[in-house]
């Protein structure tokens, strides 16, 4: 399912002294099957963009197209439920949304709200639970008896069980330890590959954006300031630094080395292995000459 935002503005608390323009003239295209990373500082407007992706917010100006449904400013937008079923959102610290008596019931909650039968929801709960790497025994437990990491996975399973076409992830690994972080990111990547799931990742981590995304959008002060493939984005690292954003460690290393050596490599490398191979080649060539 394709999603696109065209010329979207969003204002908070319209007609009060607290009115604030959160995003301005934002246009983003997310074709079906894309893995897109949205990067920016806290307050850059990326969370506001995220909430437009399944009509939690309706634009103050502009149009959001989700599949063949258009959500426009200045009009009543009814029956947003169908849209929400297609686009699943994993919010930051999603474990805060758990509330049912058992893990199974909590995972079934989303699908059943969207009219899935109980039997079907049960089946989906089991599948989703396995996808997030939890054991079946956990189904009958109370979600509040689980560890923080397990709760996070149950909450994610609750979104996956809705069987969405698009998955929106808001800092899904915040607060996890390195192992948990890696496992969760790999799991989402595998889902993206297997099911051709469009994935939109809102993150601070340049590393994750560089390793998983095929498209990157950079936001600053409510506007899209840069958009492109990871190679395009990171090939002009000076821009990122000027915006106060990091570059991936591997790019940073390449830049340091280029400065020290006084030469440039043919391109920017986004993985450690590619970079080390390129360096080895350079050093090897040095021996020959």
């Amino acid at each position: 399912m394709d999603i696109s935002l065209s010329h979207v503005d969003y204002r908070y608390q319209v007609n009060t002294p607290f009115e604030r323009l959160a995003i301005q003239d934002v246009s983003i295209d997310i074709p079906s099957g894309t893995y897109m990373a949205i990067i920016g500082h806290t307050g850059s407007g990326k969370s506001t963009v995220l909430q437009h992706l399944n009509a939690l917010l309706v634009p103050s100006e502009g149009v959001v197209a989700i599949g063949n449904r258009e959500i426009k400013a200045h009009q009543k937008n009814k029956n947003l439920r169908q849209v929400r079923q297609r686009v699943g959102i994993v919010f930051q610290f999603p474990e805060h949304q758990l509330f049912e008596e058992t893990v199974e019931k909590d995972i079934m909650f989303g699908p059943m709200n969207f009219g899935v039968t109980e039997a079907e929801a049960k089946k989906r709960a089991l599948i989703a639970l396995k996808q997030v790497g939890l054991a079946e025994e956990i189904l009958e437990k109370s979600p509040f008896d689980l560890s923080g990491g397990q709760m996070r996975r149950v909450a994610i399973a609750g979104v996956l069980a809705m069987d969405p076409d698009v998955l929106v992830l808001d800092e899904p690994t915040a607060g996890l330890d390195p192992r948990g972080r890696k496992e969760i990111m790999e799991m989402f990547y595998a889902l993206h590959k297997e099911r051709q799931l469009s994935t939109i990742l809102v993150t601070h981590s340049m590393e994750d954006a560089a390793s998983y995304a095929d498209q990157i959008v950079i936001m600053q002060q409510g506007k899209v300031v840069k958009q492109g493939t990871p190679e395009e984005i990171f090939s002009s690292p000076a821009d990122l630094v000027r915006m106060g954003l990091d570059v991936p460690e591997v790019v940073r290393f390449q830049l340091k080395l280029e400065e020290k050596w006084g030469t440039k490599f043919e391109k920017i490398f986004l993985s450690i292995d590619q970079l080390s191979a390129a360096i080895a080649k350079q050093l090897g060539r040095g021996v020959e000459s």
Binding site: Q51, L56, R81, R84, F91, P94, H96, Q97, N113, V159
Partner: peptide, 16 residues
């Protein structure tokens, strides 16, 4: 803020 956040999370899970 917390109420707003949880409310949105549940709306996304199909609550009206």
């Amino acid at each position: 803020q917390e109420t707003d956040k949880i409310m949105k999370a549940q709306i996304a899970r199909g609550v009206e």
